[in-house]
């Protein structure tokens, strides 16, 4: 798989939000080659999340792909419903992108069943590599959409994974994995420790 295959064992694709935008989404939107070119492009809403295996880049129980942002996020068997507030993604103190979160529900809208499938969809705040300030970036990027390359400005990069209590949601957020028991024993160590004499 591209430049990844010659890495020794132990190296895995664990991109941060910032890396996803700076090294992948921005380059994609600017029609620059991604190095390594490992993240495939999939048509929007074509696949249910469990169909991504083999089509998107799989890394540590997460799937990555480029796509285009659409209004409706309905696939064959269900739809992605937004959860939580959008998060700003920043780099060097500047907001460069937006992270939207979705959860997949099976069935018709309004009578559907939630699943554990979660999607993070990353948008560029500024299609042109960050020359605008964040305050007015919304308007300006809309304008740009109007006349410059229409296609590239709504590129998104997506991370899809099945959330469960043990899945690694994101390298940066949940890396420090201590098992539940470890945590308990650690707190019991506190108990022990307080018990020691003070002299």
């Amino acid at each position: 798989m591209g430049g990844a295959s010659n890495l020794p064992p132990g190296f895995h694709f664990f991109p941060s939000d910032e890396e996803l935008i700076v090294h992948f989404l921005r380059r994609k939107a600017s029609l620059l080659p991604c190095r390594p070119d490992i993240v495939p492009t999939l048509p929007p809403n074509r696949y249910d999340p469990w169909e991504l295996n083999g089509k998107a880049l799989e890394a540590g129980n997460q799937w990555y792909f480029f796509s285009h942002s659409t209004q409706s996020r309905t696939s064959q068997n269900g739809q992605w419903n937004p959860i939580g507030a959008d998060e700003a993604v920043s780099s060097g103190g500047r907001n460069i992108g937006l992270k939207k979160k979705f959860i997949f529900s099976i069935g018709e809208p309004f009578q559907s069943n939630k699943t554990n499938w979660v999607m993070h969809e990353y948008h560029l705040l500024d299609g042109n590599g960050g020359s605008s300030t964040s305050s007015s970036s919304g308007k300006r990027s809309h304008k740009k959409k109007g006349h410059s390359n229409k296609e590239s400005s709504n590129w998104v990069i997506c991370r899809v994974f099945e959330s469960s209590c043990h899945s690694q949601v994101s390298f940066h957020e949940d890396d420090m994995e201590l098992s539940c028991l470890d945590e308990v024993f650690l707190s019991l160590d506190d108990y022990d420790e307080v018990s020691l004499p003070k002299n």
Partner: peptide, 18 residues
């Protein structure tokens, strides 16, 4: 190391390879 990649071996990689 290409962007996005990290050395974050699984326990199996740590034991069985390294």
């Amino acid at each position: 190391v290409p962007p996005g990649f990290r050395f974050h071996p699984t326990e199996e990689e740590l034991l069985n390879y390294y």
